[in-house]
């Protein structure tokens, strides 16, 4: 089974992000970047399927600037066999990314595509679903367990109020939730070997995909600062404040 796994370069989760002074975007100057944590889970799952002998090849793909090669190298160090960077300096929306991935799926013909359920920068949670719509592949989102069996794939999904188990016919697309696995650390020998694995770079134009944006960002603002708490004298006062000040009951 060939697996395509997607990798996004995002602000490292440890970084306290700041909004640019002109409110146009998050300030990325001198900010540490890393692989999106949900993508790490996707890569880990693909590597585990390969270690179990179920997957035969793992192709990691990223859409982003030339520097996204760093995250693809990490994916290679974690166990992907080869990598593909669709290089663009533009800030692409989910649909443009899904269209680019569709072109890669057409070319690579993977049996399984694993993506993170969302990226921690834009939190859109839609690329995997859009890709499923574009390719016509079956989809299992928010996966907390995968169990392939022949040409079928059992996916346990985390849904509101419990777990749902689906059986998908391959080829399929799965998006990862937090509890699917715990990603490993790249080992030093694998980092060294990753250097020799193939990393190909193409452009959206090479894939014949127009990435013209349908959305325009008007403004980016930091969340309102949290106000200091107060001490209440009685339960009655608490209820009164919840009703009239916080307006939550």
């Amino acid at each position: 089974m060939k697996i395509l796994v997607t990798v996004k370069r995002v602000v490292d989760y440890n970084v306290k992000v700041r909004v640019k002074a002109d409110n146009s975007a998050v300030d990325l100057a001198n900010v540490k970047m890393a692989m999106n944590p949900f993508c790490e889970i996707a890569v880990e799952e693909a590597v585990r399927l390969k270690e179990r002998g179920i997957a035969s090849e793992i192709v990691a793909v990223s859409v982003g600037p030339a520097a996204a090669q760093e995250q693809l190298r990490t994916a290679l160090a974690l166990g992907a066999d080869r990598a593909l960077l669709i290089e663009t300096d533009e800030e692409l929306g989910s649909l443009a990314v899904a269209k680019l991935l569709k072109a890669v799926v057409d070319k690579e013909q993977p049996q399984l595509v694993i993506t993170g359920k969302q990226a921690i920068d834009s939190d859109n949670n839609q690329t995997g679903q859009m890709l499923a719509a574009l390719t016509g592949y079956a989809q299992g989102t928010f996966a907390s367990k995968l169990e392939p069996a022949g040409d079928k794939l059992k996916v346990v999904r985390e849904i509101d109020g419990g777990l749902q188990t689906l059986e998908l016919a391959l080829p399929a697309i799965v998006t990862t939730d937090l509890r699917l696995n715990e990603p490993r650390y790249a080992s030093l020998p694998n980092i060294m070997k990753a250097k020799k694995k193939p990393l190909e770079t193409v452009t959206p134009a090479d894939l014949g995909v127009s990435v013209a944006s349908t959305l325009k960002t008007l403004k980016v603002e930091a969340p309102a600062e949290r106000q200091a708490g107060i001490k209440v004298g009685s339960v009655a006062e608490l209820v009164e404040k919840l009703k009239n000040e916080a307006k939550v009951i």
Binding site: E70, T74, Y185, A186, I191, M192, K195
Partner: peptide, 22 residues
Amino acid sequence: AALDVELAAQVVEEAGRFAGGV
């Protein structure tokens, strides 16, 4: 001779993940 800037940076970064995480 086979060591370049990118590889060295990746080694240091992963070592940092190990130290900080484990």
